[in-house]
Design a protein around this nucleic acid. Structure first.
Length: 255
DNA sequence: AAGTTCGGCAACCGCAATGAA
DNA sequence: TTTCATTGCGGTTGCCGAACT
């Protein structure tokens, strides 16, 4: 007997999320917190599987996400953590508040890998790339050759100033990195959730309506305060999930 | 200007891990 | 302890816009 699919795939929508779907998911998450992903699409009125909802929320809609390119410091940190942890993207992401494993994974594959290669560092082992083997005695003219690899031979790590001391930076320790806990990221809770029943709101996002209301009289104020508190979604990153709230009636959120 | 290639990123897939019954 | 449901994670795919020809 095979594994059960995570959801009934018949009639479920796939592909890019629409603004309307985002709105519904945001509204639902703010009202109910994070729980029972399997039930989310049904309760939120979405024709998506729970997995898809979770991914959309954690990778794109979560209010504590930073958007935009990783800073140089963040890149260094990712490289160092990758050297220690390997491809454990979620572990790496846990050391970079506001960044998702998917985002870091993508950034690694599209940017950092190339940079390391150019510096003569093997992105897999974080050791210097082995020098190219001497050409065989009867050499055929080189076939096309990968342009990138050729560049690798030309530039050595010493020649490049990028990421100075990446591997020699021994005074760096992941213990020094503050790991932001969810309650620190989201809202200043004034009361702790009373109990954790199976499907009670378990995210600090909205442990209860009272919690929200003691912050501000309206949901919009709450959002504003939250965004101000954590400087999230700064200008310049284009549309994000919270932009969608602009035309979302407070009433829709039952707040 | 039109067609093609490339790069970046959001989203999907499937397996692993975990928890509940 | 076993079975099954659910969530988490990492690898991969495919779309879309930018750059190039």
């Amino acid at each position: 007997m095979g594994r059960q699919p995570c959801c009934d795939k018949v009639g479920l929508k796939k592909g890019p999320w629409t603004c309307d779907e985002d709105k519904k998911l945001i509204a639902f998450m703010l009202n109910n917190g994070q729980c029972c992903w399997r039930a989310v699409p049904k309760l939120a009125g979405l024709l998506r599987c729970g997995k898809s909802c979770r991914l959309r929320w954690t990778n794109y809609l979560r209010p504590d996400l930073k958007r935009g390119l990783l800073s140089q410091d963040e890149e260094k940190l990712v490289i160092d953590l990758h050297a220690q942890l390997g491809n454990r993207w979620s572990k790496i992401a846990s050391h970079l508040p506001g960044r998702t494993d998917n985002e870091i994974k993508n950034h690694w594959n599209t940017h950092i890998k190339k940079k390391l290669k150019k510096m003569g560092i093997d992105p897999l082992t974080h050791k210097p790339l082995s020098p190219p083997p001497p050409p065989p005695p009867e050499t055929e003219p080189e076939k096309g050759g990968d342009k990138e690899e050729e560049e690798d031979k030309i530039r050595s790590p010493i020649e490049s100033n990028e990421f100075d001391n990446i591997n020699n930076d021994n005074d760096f320790s992941i213990d020094e990195i503050p790991v932001m806990e969810p309650h620190e990221i989201l809202i200043h809770q004034q009361s702790t959730p009373s109990s954790s029943s199976s499907c009670s709101p378990c995210s600090p996002l909205s442990s209860s309506l009272e919690d929200l209301q003691c912050f501000s009289p309206t949901f919009r104020d709450y959002c504003t305060e939250m965004m101000n508190s954590y400087s999230i979604w700064e200008d310049g990153f284009g549309i994000n999930g919270w932009d969608l709230l602009d035309d979302l009636e407070i009433g829709e959120l039952n707040i």
